[in-house]
């Protein structure tokens, strides 16, 4: 199973240019996962011990609001990365993630990766660089959403 994931991970833009040694370390923490539509990948305040590389389907990142129900703030679909709370203490999810379509993903075990990153700071740095980029993109997108640019200006 791990062997079958290696080429998939090696070709993914998120892990491109990772050294074979580091890629092996990442592959060692990877597993295939599948979620039916409507199932939660994780819930707010649960322990954040993985991140996902979505291969197929679509996942909604939601915030629960008391009277209006869940508000979707972002969707993540094929090719994209979901979740970085596993990287930073207290390793807890801040949002809900729900599959809105049948979804296939590769789950990367966060606990496993954290240990490997502590032991090999080069790997840690490689992963942080990649997550920093994703965070930057999300932050920019969030800023644009906050601007409410399509809203009625008057």
């Amino acid at each position: 199973m791990l062997d079958s994931l290696r080429p998939v991970l090696a070709e993914h833009p998120f892990l491109s240019d990772l050294s074979p040694r580091h890629l092996d370390l990442v592959v060692g923490c990877a597993s295939n996962v599948r979620f039916e539509a409507g199932k939660y990948l994780f819930r707010e305040e649960e322990d954040a011990n993985q991140f996902y590389i979505i291969r197929e389907g679509k996942v909604a990142v939601e915030i629960r609001t008391p009277h209006r129900g869940p508000l979707t703030v972002q969707t993540v679909s094929a090719g994209e990365i979901l979740g970085w709370s596993w990287l930073l203490p207290p390793y807890q999810w801040h949002f809900d993630a729900r599959a809105v379509e049948p979804t296939r993903a590769i789950a990367l075990d966060g606990k496993c990766l954290r240990v490997k990153c502590e032991n090999d700071h080069d790997l840690g740095y490689e992963l942080l660089k990649r997550f920093a980029q994703i965070m930057e993109q999300r932050l920019e997108a969030t800023r644009l959403q906050v601007l409410d640019i399509y809203g009625n200006p008057s």
């Binding site: 990142v61 869940p70 979707t72 809105v100 993109q137 997108a141």
Partner: peptide
Amino acid sequence: TVDRAMGGWRGNVGVVTTLIQK
């Protein structure tokens, strides 16, 4: 894509710029 949506929406959520790379 829409900037925000409540539960019933099954489409994309996120600013339109995020669609460009894909």
